[in-house]
Design a protein around this nucleic acid. Structure first.
Lengths: 192, 192
DNA sequence: GTCCAAAACTAATTATATTAGTCTTGAAAA
DNA sequence: TTTTCAAGACTAATATAATTAGTTTTGGAC
């Protein structure tokens, strides 16, 4: 291979990942990214189809990182279902706090071209659904999973968009909300 | 006043509101908006400071419309707290389905310059918080409000971003989730 | 009929994504 | 050692958008 490459797809992704958190999605331009990598903008196009495709790759990588974090959290937590579930949900929020722009981009990309393959999402939440199934039964597990994900995702999105600004302990509010939801799940289970 | 104006701030907002739902936020350019209004792009700057300010106005208008919808829903619903709460949360989701782009823009604007004044948000949810306070007491009401809003907002955002694609009845899942959360609220209340 | 300020316009600037076409390098062949 | 050539980077050019500066038009008031 004549002419050693100065960059590759991996280096682009790594750099973009860092830049994303530093500048936010609005400011993450290919020009800035290229200059960070020490090349000119058009050089990037040897490795990426376009900006949307780059962001999609970033999002898929975020999904994988989140999956790893979930796996790790579960193995560190008490094996009873409620503990496993809480651990995963707490980890989701922690991840969003650590990598806010990556989280927001992954879960609310405006254009379809940036959206990761749906399979990534399924893979991400399947273990969680299994824990939930132990709690509420398999046939209610998808609905219960969706509620739990919605609760955490919504909480996090409101936080990240500065829409929970009225004071109070947000950590406590989060823990409360999750506890309330899980308690409700157990309760409603009895009623059916 | 020499030279009758062809547009005004209100006409711009109305047109932008319609265009937003038709094209999405990415495609909503000042050029497109101006041509829709039958003027050239720079003419808009007599009425708006810049694109961000326009989007902020749009967002504040969305908040007001949502507030109206909430008020109307509450007056149509049974006056007991749980019915009032359910009605509001259901209305939030219905609004998001009717005006997806306006909803997403209002609650997850990327840049701070587009974000509506926080007071709008407080005004929007205060009546809901009062209903919740009747259920769980004033001192738990903020936390309980946040959980409820998070649940609905998260559910809606996942829906709008096509992240609930595994089938099943989403309306039922939503109703279930809200029911579970409200049941949990009542339960945890007893425990404290 | 003239005046003038409001309101629109044209032209120019900047930034970004993207495409087309050119140049450079260095490993491998001769 | 020299030549070759394709990978990989570069420069130049195009298109779209936001924004600013400066110019022109209009029509009510005098």
């Amino acid at each position: 291979m004549p002419y050693p490459a100065q960059i590759d797809h991996e280096a682009i992704l790594t750099s973009a990942e860092q830049l994303l958190e530093r500048t936010g999605i609005e400011q993450l331009s290919l020009t800035l990214l290229a200059s960070e990598l020490g090349v000119k903008t058009p050089s990037l196009y040897r490795y990426i189809a376009n900006r949307d495709a780059l962001l999609r790759s970033l999002n898929e990588r975020t999904m994988q990182q989140l999956f790893s974090a979930f796996t790790q959290a579960r193995s560190a937590a008490d094996p009873v279902p409620t503990a496993q579930i809480s651990a995963v949900l707490r980890t989701q929020r922690a991840f969003a706090h650590t990598r806010p722009h990556a989280y927001m981009l992954a879960f609310s990309s405006t254009s379809a071209a940036q959206r990761p393959d749906p399979a990534h999402l399924v893979r991400l939440v399947l273990p969680l659904q299994e824990c939930i199934a132990e709690l509420v039964g398999a046939n209610r597990s998808l609905s219960a999973l969706r509620g739990g994900l919605a609760l955490v995702h919504g909480f996090v999105m409101l936080e990240l968009n500065n829409q929970l600004q009225r004071g109070g302990d947000l950590n406590a509010a989060f823990e409360d909300s999750v506890r309330v939801y899980l308690a409700g799940l157990a309760l409603v289970q009895e009623n059916e």
